[in-house]
Amino acid sequence: MTSELVAPAAASTRSRRGRGSTLTRGSGLGLGIAVTWFSILVLIPLALVVVQAVGGGWSVFADTLTNSQTWDALVLTVVEALLVTAVNVVMGTVIAWVLVRDRFPGKRILEVVIDIPFALPTIVAGLVLLSLYGPDSPLGIDVSNTRAAVFLALLFVTLPFVVRTVEPVLIELDPEVEEAAASLGASRATTLRRVVLPALAPAITAGAALSFARGISEYGSLVLLSGNLPHRTEVASVRILTYIENDKPEQAAAVAVLLLVVALAAIVSLQLVSRWVARRG
């Protein structure tokens, strides 16, 4: 989200100052310190993950992928993240719609409720879900140690993404355009399909990409809830952790890099879908 906020500023700064560097000696020193710190903390460690994975060569990737436990974990992770993202696309858009267009007492409380999954520590999120959907469930629904638990945990932690990306766009979207479409004889469904949906598509896509990326990398909320049963409820993050604990950093790094590739592929394909929907509008 920040990158979108930063992009227009980059253009305006450039036109104001012209090309090249405007750094003074002091700010240049500050930049040097900041970039060094950022490299020490983030860039070098992350680069080492890629180096570790690639350094082992194709054989490590092949070995890691042909490990049936790892393969099952990767498939489960991707499938569950896709399912959760699909639910978020629908429910997130409906929630954003109600928050923006509807008015009723207590709506502001809903705004806070939406952000709770962001604010809660992930391990607490797992415990929270376990209290309603675990062995002592007052509803009599016990999903702990099943694949439904993975689904539920991902649904919880990714709740805010689509809502929070669609909301601002919906606020900007002028209801008069919809009224105009309606007055020209368009049905409610046609207005939604031809006017509202194309306008919201980029935001929904951005939210879906964030939700999917978070879904495939989730760990904390699953620990207490899913039981981490091999071949059943074990996700990719848990495989990475197991590889680290067994002192196999190459395999851990290989799974990490695979997840990164999957996330990038998802973001690119969602962009394509978004463009297609926007063009049809």
């Binding site: 920040t2 990158s3 983030v42 070098i44 460690p45 992350l46 080492l48 993950v49 570790q52 992930t122 990326a213 495939i216 990398s217 989730e218 760990y219 904390g220 993050s237 990475i240 952790l241 680290i244 950093p249 851990a252 790094a253 990490a256 997840l259 996330a263």
Partner: peptide
Amino acid sequence: DLPLSVSPVVVGLAILLA
């Protein structure tokens, strides 16, 4: 923005590797 899109488990791995 990179740290927000990296799995916490991968962050741990990265720091151990460094």
